[in-house]
């Protein structure tokens, strides 16, 4: 099992100019990033949608690498999205999955069949040409440059330690440094699209 902050730190060294959708890794990524306006930390607009959002972004910006840190709870809610992504086959799309085997933000209840589901196998079965799985940071860090050197879509399942939250939602401290509107506005300016649609 890896700590999410550690694996994101390992990734940060190889980020380059990629657009990063940090998903539920956002709370750590905002402290690690060196290119905030290429980050899309949205929190959780609606569960299950991070992969779709990142797919849309990758299809709209085929000349730019898009890296997503999804979660197993999200993708279990949207398994069919794997088939959609595989069919579209964006070569600039890198789909990392943070698998903590539970719903950490609701108290740590296990996801269905938590310890058994092989997400890399699901991705490959859905049609991803390349899929990997790692449980140890050293192995992941070693393999990362080669993974990023391959064309997408690539799927990488990562076993991470749960960071369970039991505080009532209203009392949790916000990690977001920008509103969602500002995040998208900053990205569009960064991409040369202007701030508004």
């Amino acid at each position: 099992m890896m700590h999410t902050a550690e694996l994101l730190s390992a990734f940060a060294a190889h980020r380059g100019n990629a657009i990063v959708v940090p998903g539920r890794g956002g709370r750590h990524w905002v402290k690690l990033t060196t290119h905030e306006t290429r980050d899309v930390p949205l929190g959780d607009p609606a569960m299950g949608g991070h992969a779709g959002f990142a797919l849309g972004l990758a299809l709209a910006q085929p000349g730019r690498r898009v890296v997503l840190f999804d979660s197993e709870g999200d993708i279990l809610m949207s398994l069919g999205m794997l088939a959609t992504i595989a069919e579209q086959a964006p070569a600039n799309f890198y789909h990392f999955l943070l698998d903590n085997e539970c719903y950490a933000t609701t108290g740590g209840q296990p996801v269905p069949n938590a310890t058994t589901v092989a997400y890399d196998v699901l991705a490959r079965g859905a049609g991803y040409p390349r899929a990997f799985a790692f449980t140890e940071l050293a192995e992941f860090s070693h393999a990362l440059p080669a993974i990023l050197a391959q064309p997408g879509p690539v799927f990488v399942a990562l076993k991470v330690l749960p960071e369970v939250e039991n505080t009532p939602i209203g009392r949790r401290s916000r990690w977001q440094t920008r509103t969602r509107d500002k995040v998208v506005q900053d990205l569009r300016i960064e991409l040369g699209l202007g701030g508004a649609a």
């Binding site: 991070h50 779709g52 849309g56 972004l57 990758a58 910006q61 959609t84 699209l193």
Partner: peptide, 26 residues
């Protein structure tokens, strides 16, 4: 036109949001 087939209609919403953020008109 690019056709993006989804397996559940809710998926279309997040995909459309990403396309729009990236400058497309879904």
């Amino acid at each position: 036109l690019r056709l993006i087939g989804v397996t559940r209609e809710g998926h279309a919403c997040s995909i459309a949001a990403g396309l729009h953020a990236g400058g497309h008109r879904p």
